[in-house]
Design a protein around this nucleic acid. Sequence first.
DNA 1: TTGATATTTTGAAAATTTTCAAAATATCAT
DNA 2: ATGATATTTTGAAAATTTTCAAAATATCAA
Lengths: 108, 108
Amino acid sequence: MEIRSLVFKALADPTRRAILDRLREGDLNAGDLAAGFDIGKASISHHLNLLKQAGLVKARRQGQQQIYTLHTTVFQEALQWLMNFPTQPTPPTPPKGSEKSGRNGPLG
Amino acid sequence: MEIRSLVFKALADPTRRAILDRLREGDLNAGDLAAGFDIGKASISHHLNLLKQAGLVKARRQGQQQIYTLHTTVFQEALQWLMNFPTQPTPPTPPKGSEKSGRNGPLG
DNA sequence: TTGATATTTTGAAAATTTTCAAAATATCAT
DNA sequence: ATGATATTTTGAAAATTTTCAAAATATCAA
């Protein structure tokens, strides 16, 4: 699967977004991460694996524990794709003959 | 399903991203949109419905045709969530006692 | 109303995802 | 080596997604 789909797929799940939100406050090991959720450790492990595939987190071993960290390069790429979209609703253009004018970038 | 998951789920599929990319160049009706892809019109219709649920596109009827348009408010919200993440890899913090310092926002 | 065109909905199959419990692996302490 | 702790992998069930073909719906033109 291509990286861009992987990234958005990873972000499409609330559990995985919650994991990312918690990692923003600092690195965490798998057990502590899992402790915050209702689902089992095995499931969290799968989610972490998906986040790893997407390149959104990295893990390093520290003794018995796996410490998970945000890896933020990938966020920027997702961001950049999103920033290609105009912020204002497209003005009602006639559907086939499209006269292009200056288009707005996001956020302004 | 909550809107944020819907948005990222919508963006997670290459066909749907391609639809959005094509709509950036101008509004299109369902048939012309479908013409660009290998899959059937019914499938495109499902994808469009998902994009509509996510609030990423709007449709208006023009005679027999449904004209699809980007609806970009939602992109901004996705963007804003992504912008909460730091750009630099988190410096190796000791996992439990986290001393917070000034954190970077994205892109700078 | 009838026929043609445009699009969506339905029903069903194939593929994927999420989850759990149990088993397997890795590291540490003795 | 043995036992304890931390995490991942496996096997399997339930839920969801993607797709297609066929049927249904909506609009237009005569």
